[in-house]
Write a protein that binds this DNA or RNA. Structure first.
Lengths: 141, 141
DNA sequence: TTACCTGCAAACTCTTTGCACCGCA
DNA sequence: TGCGGTGCAAAGAGTTTGCAGGTAA
């Protein structure tokens, strides 16, 4: 139930195709970042991506990391999230609608499928609600 | 139902008492900021408080605004919030548990009483949930 | 060749901090 | 008088931007 619907790992040609189909020129840097963010990483920060790049991709600048992540967010391949307990943005490759659970012990951010939650509210009488995002804070039992 | 449970307007002696009871020395600057944040303002940013101070309180520095708001947050008179669509922190004087509705047309943040919402989730089988915070995005019907 | 992607550095915004001054208890 | 609150400026973190050079189509 809490298993995140992780994007299955893509190989390089698949990533190239994915980028092209989103009208993004597949440069080496962009493919590398996609491999990490779409497959390997779990709610990475910019810093996480940069650290990974420093180890796995020679001489990638921080600006490129920012530019690429923003680009991926703009075309809808990732989503930028901000949580109250974090001062920096994190990126989420799970583009399905879902909620989040913060494990207060580990700090980990865990995806919660939309159908694991049921929300009813009477504010929908007054407002058209387009989006409902829930952050649970908890600890493992 | 959507009327925010606004802190009723306090006069200066009441604010002094409130500060003292929270072990905060009631300086002129702190009282002024409290008057604005607790009574007049609605989810103000630091910038909002600073602008207000520039008009209503002579020569208050930005550092004092930050220090005071952080102090008020630490003693539990206000809460610091971060929303995904805003890059800066906002402060909420409503200390009752509640959720938030972002009016996507005006950008306004509206308090939603806790009992206007009912949430059920099966993740509570695996996790002890201490807190549930919901952000609705919507537009007025 | 040309378009555009990257790296670098500087700039920008938000926030915190160090320090000297000042005022109130 | 002394503690502590304030103002100022500088520093710090995260992020964006401008520009020159390079790379791939």
């Amino acid at each position: 139930m809490l298993v995140p619907p992780k994007t299955s790992c893509l190989n390089i040609p698949e990533i190239e195709k994915l980028l092209r189909s989103n009208k993004v020129q597949p440069s080496a840097q962009r493919i590398a970042i996609c491999r990490y963010v779409l497959c390997e990483a779990d709610h990475p920060t910019v810093e996480d991506v940069k650290s990974w790049a420093d180890k796995n991709f020679p001489r990638m600048s921080l600006a490129t990391v920012y530019n690429t992540l923003n680009l991926l967010a703009n075309v809808g391949l990732v989503r930028q999230l901000r949580f109250p307990h974090l001062d920096k943005a994190v990126f989420d490759a799970n583009m399905e609608p879902h909620h989040h659970l913060i494990d207060d012990e580990s700090g980990r951010i865990i995806d919660v499928p939309i159908d694991a939650v049921n929300v009813e509210t009477n504010i929908s009488k007054t407002y058209d609600i387009h989006e409902t995002s829930i952050i649970f804070n908890g600890t493992r039992k």
